[in-house]
């Protein structure tokens, strides 16, 4: 199902930990605590397995994967769609799992980094290319990079260095393995 809560309401209800700013004169009013969060039932497919969940409507796909399904390969780097560490495939399209509610995933097929390898466990060509080209250091952005790279190749964007650099720029890497990531994506694309 899809939920009727708007993105704005959702963020207002569960916003990040900002204290209520104040003037020297005194307090502003407290936001109203939402004491009975609306629940939804969602059925979707994660890494080839059917998943049914009864969750609060505000639950993001990212938090559900990480906190309730123990699929912790998908990382939270910014929680606002700016870093790409939480990149997953939703019906084959790369998306930031922090910007999607689980409730929006009704009937969808979701692939996380844990589902990228072949069913027999052998690595996806992108995964192997990342190892071969030393395309990561700390590895925290790597799940998002790997998923994004697989989609980048499938989209037909892995045609040149310039194209890969552009189409992989939604995934930040603070260790800055960018030249190696570009090389890995191009190498994997040649093998695909």
């Amino acid at each position: 199902m899809t939920d009727s809560l708007s993105r704005r309401e959702f963020l207002g209800a569960s916003g990040a930990a900002v204290g209520v700013a104040l003037t020297p004169a005194g307090a502003t009013a407290a936001p109203k605590g939402r004491t009975a969060e609306r629940m939804v039932d969602v059925t979707c497919n994660v890494n080839g397995r059917p998943v049914s969940a009864h969750v609060e409507a505000r639950t993001t796909l990212l938090d559900h994967l990480r906190e309730r399904m123990d699929l912790t390969g998908t990382k939270k780097g910014c929680n606002e769609g700016a870093c790409g560490a939480c990149t997953v495939l939703v019906d084959g399209k790369r998306m930031n799992a922090c910007l999607i509610l689980l409730a929006q995933c009704e009937g969808r097929a979701i692939t996380t980094v844990e589902g990228i390898a072949q069913p027999d466990g052998s690595l996806h060509p992108v995964q192997q290319a990342f190892i071969d080209h030393d395309a990561f250091q700390c590895g925290f952005c790597t799940p998002g990079q790997v998923v994004s790279a697989a989609a980048c190749i499938a989209e037909g964007h892995a045609t040149s260095e310039a194209s890969v650099r552009e189409w992989m720029s939604g995934n930040l890497c603070r260790c800055s393995a960018y030249p190696q990531i570009t090389a890995a994506v191009l190498a994997a694309a040649r093998r695909a």
Partner: peptide
């Protein structure tokens, strides 16, 4: 490398303990 490209490498926040409480800080305004 294998642990990192498959998502198996566990970082601090990837540890989901039984009975865990989630903490969120409130900062001075």
């Amino acid at each position: 490398g294998h642990a990192k490209v498959t998502g198996k490498a566990r970082y601090a926040a990837d540890n989901n303990l039984a009975r865990v409480l989630h903490a969120v800080l409130v900062g001075a305004p």
